Amino acid sequence: MGRRGQAITLSISEQDKAQLEALALEFGLTWGDRPNISRLVEAIARRQLVIAPNHDWPKERVNALNRARTALIDAGEIEMAVAIAQLLLERSEITIPLRTEIEQFIHRPALPWRVEIERYIHRQCPFQLSYQDAAERVWNFTIHYAEIAIHEERQYLDCWCEETVDNRDLPELIHNWCLRLDRITDAAVSPVKGKWRDGLATIAVEMHLFSGLAFAYRSKTAKDEINEWLEEPPQVRRVVRRISNSFWFIREVLRYGKDCEIVSPDRVRDRMKREVLELYARYHTIAQPE
């Protein structure tokens, strides 16, 4: 006679019992034609069945982890970023584009030229960056200051360069360049002589905030030099901020709509005015005579 197995008692509700029987039946663990919970437990213990994590993560949790991954990349913590990437790949909730992006990152977590750039930034040593864009144009920049920045969820190299040709920003800011890193597939990086700057070139811009925005606005402490309420007109917030790129500044102000007005300097105000007029022209339809 064969040795009988040890008996165990499960204290579960009828609903849980029915769920376990359904699982046993699903995996063919039966006694005769009836589902057998004991065989189900035995299969789990012997790792014939693997208990997998649930697949009900909300979108917010996935996005938060992915933002943490990109923040770790920016901080140079590649190993920790890879660990989070591998965790995300185990989830079925992530979208196909995000899965493709993460798989590419794990395959090549740090491009050699990116690592080299970060070393120069850390050592505060000027360097030259050369690369070819998608239109097969070759770009050469002699960089005396650089930082990795996030603009609208994309990584950029914000840098002060000797070269100014084709830069369409204001004269005071034409040495500043904003290079989108994911569009650089390969690059040559080499040291150059010169002095490392304290930061990007900047100008002061004054703007007035109205209505709910005036109360909801939170100061960007690293950039805002003045953040105060005006006495006249009342309930208007005055903010003076140093900016390094008029394009990104105007992109931000456009989101505020009528609740934000650029007061000075006139050149930035005029650029904003042109954007508004072009936007108006896009939506304005002139009635055609019958």
Rank of each mutant, 00 (worst) to 15 (best):
Q104H: 04
I150K: 01
T100C: 07
P112A: 04
A135N: 11
R119Q: 15
H122D: 07
H122W: 10
I148C: 12
H144N: 15
E147D: 05
I102E: 06
P112Q: 01
S130D: 11
I150W: 07
A110E: 15
H144S: 08
L111S: 07
A149C: 07
W113N: 04
L129T: 00
I102S: 01
C125T: 13
E136R: 09
L129D: 00
D133T: 06
E136A: 13
I102A: 05
D133Y: 05
V115Y: 02
L111V: 04
E101D: 13
H122R: 15
F141A: 05
I106A: 11
P126R: 03
Q104G: 10
E101H: 07
A110L: 15
I117R: 00
A110F: 05
Y120F: 03
R123M: 02
Q124A: 15
I117L: 02
A149P: 03
L111H: 10
I143N: 10
I150P: 10
W139V: 06
Q104A: 14
E116I: 04
R114W: 09
R119F: 00
R108A: 14
Q104T: 10
H122I: 03
R99C: 08
E116S: 15
A149W: 10
Q132M: 10
V115H: 05
R114F: 13
R123E: 14
I106T: 14
E136C: 03
E103D: 08
N140V: 15
P112S: 12
H151W: 15
D133M: 04
F105V: 05
E118V: 02
V138F: 12
H151S: 07
P112W: 00
Y120S: 00
D133S: 12
Q132Y: 15
A146T: 00
I121Y: 04
I150H: 09
I121H: 03
S130W: 07
R123L: 05
L129F: 11
H144Y: 05
E116P: 06
H144L: 01
I106M: 09
E147V: 08
I143V: 14
E118A: 05
Y145W: 09
L111T: 09
Y131L: 04
T142R: 11
R137I: 10
E101A: 15
R123G: 02
Q124R: 14
R108N: 14
I106D: 06
C125Q: 08
Q124P: 04
R108C: 08
F127D: 00
Q128D: 03
R99I: 03
A135R: 11
H151A: 12
A110P: 02
S130P: 04
S130R: 12
E147T: 07
I106R: 14
V115P: 01
R137E: 14
H122S: 11
T142W: 01
R137V: 10
I121V: 07
I117F: 01
I102C: 07
D133E: 08
P126N: 03
Q104N: 13
L129E: 05
R114Q: 14
Q124G: 01
Q132G: 02
W139C: 00
A149Y: 06
I117C: 12
P109D: 12
